[in-house]
Each structure stands twice: as C-alpha cells, then as structure tokens.
C-alpha cells in the first residue's frame, strides 16, 4: 500500500479523541483502590492493638513511607502510560527514594528489634502473607494494567513494575493494619519480599502485555 493511501484512510477514520489527563486517571484509580482497600479492612477487621500501634513512631513511619511509595508509584505508572515520558524522565525514579528509606527502616528494625533469626523466620512458613499480598493486588493490578494498556506506554517494563509496586504496597499496608505480626525479620521475609516479587512480576507482565497499543 502506498503511504499516501494509508494517510487518506487514517484521515478518513479520523483522529481519536483525547483521553483524560494521566493525573486525573491516576486519581480516579487511587480512589477506587482506596474504596477496595477500606472494604478489605472492614472484612478482615483491624488488629486489636491498632490504637497503640499508631502511636508508635516506627510503625507510623513504616505505614506512611509505604503509603508514599504507593502514591508515587501510581503517579509514575500514570506518566509511564504515555509515549513521551521522556519529557519527565525523572518521574519513574521518584518512588525509589521512599523505597530506599523504607528498606533502611526495615534493616534498622531488623538489627535493633528482631527476636527471630532468619532460619526461625523461615520455619514460620507464613506463606499466607505472601498469598494475601498477591491476591489483594490482583483486582487493582488488573485494573491498572487494563487502563495502562489502553494508553501507549513506551517503557513497558517500568510501567509494569510501578503497577506491581503500587498494588503490592497497598497489600503490605493492609497486612500491617490487620495482621499482628511485628517482628522486623518476619516483615522483611514474609511481607516486603513479596512486594519486591510483585514488582518483578509487574515488570515481566508489562513487557508482554503493555506494548501492543490497542487504543
């Protein structure tokens, strides 16, 4: 087919109408995720000592840091759904700053407050935490992947990994609010590593699913 013919056909089909801005879409998704999150909290019930825990600076810092990771990774995923992310290339690195602080906080907790060794922690076999983080993230993750695939991402691995980080982070916060496990070693092995795993899964899925540009 001649290029001029293709141009005529595309012009005949007409240019697609502009989609809502990335920030508006991200806000909408976060609102939906918050409602879903609240529903899960209601279903599970908050941990008995939640009032006491929220007064502990370390617990509060941990939850707020993870919340900032969730918000920033959602923002990054929104921008990464656009083809011209190179206009703000730094945005995809923004969630990594609080993530680094979070890792530091966990390591600090492990060195100073952990009562379990690594082998003892592994023997706990808290696979239920891993499964819950993955399952909690399926619905919002699926929604975010769907919305991102309708856009035109050019950094598909980054977009997928940000989606994985966002939804797994929500799962982490939920577990901290409903599950009484507090030992830092346990948090690292059975809560945080699954979050990293979901980030990698998101990267792999992003590479496979986000590059097709269905429009």
């Amino acid at each position: 087919m001649q290029t001029s013919d293709l141009i005529s056909r595309l012009a005949h089909e007409g240019a697609p109408k502009p989609a809502p801005k990335a920030s508006a879409v991200v806000l909408r998704l976060l609102l939906l995720a918050t409602l879903y999150f609240i529903l899960l909290v209601v279903i599970h019930g908050l941990r008995d000592d939640i009032g006491q825990k929220l007064q502990q600076s370390l617990f509060l810092s941990e939850v707020l840091l993870m919340l900032s990771i969730v918000l920033l990774s959602a923002l990054a995923a929104g921008w990464l759904s656009l083809p011209d992310i190179n206009q703000k290339p730094w945005i995809r690195f923004v969630p990594l700053a609080p993530l680094g602080l979070f890792v530091g906080l966990l390591i600090y907790g492990m060195w100073n407050f952990s009562t379990l060794t690594l082998s003892e922690c592994l023997q706990l076999s808290r696979f239920d935490c891993v499964v819950r983080i993955i399952l909690y993230g399926l619905l919002p993750g699926g929604g975010m992947f769907y919305v991102t695939a309708k856009a035109a991402p050019t950094r598909c691995c980054w977009a997928g990994s940000m989606i994985g980080l966002c939804v797994a982070g929500l799962g982490y916060i939920l577990l901290r609010l409903v599950d009484p496990s507090d030992d830092p070693m346990q948090l690292v092995v059975w809560h945080f590593l699954p979050v990293m795993f979901m980030m990698v899964v998101g990267m792999v899925l992003g590479r496979r699913l986000l590059g097709r540009w269905q429009g």
Binding site: I7, A151, A152, W213, G215
Partner: peptide, 14 residues
C-alpha cells in the same frame, strides 16, 4: 514509516 503512522494514529488519544 507506515508502522509509525499507524502507531501515531492508534496512540492519538494520548
């Protein structure tokens, strides 16, 4: 070239 024009058309909403 035609691939790119098609991609621009498909991604026009962004």
């Amino acid at each position: 070239l035609q691939d790119v024009l098609l991609a621009i058309h498909r991604a026009g909403h962004t």
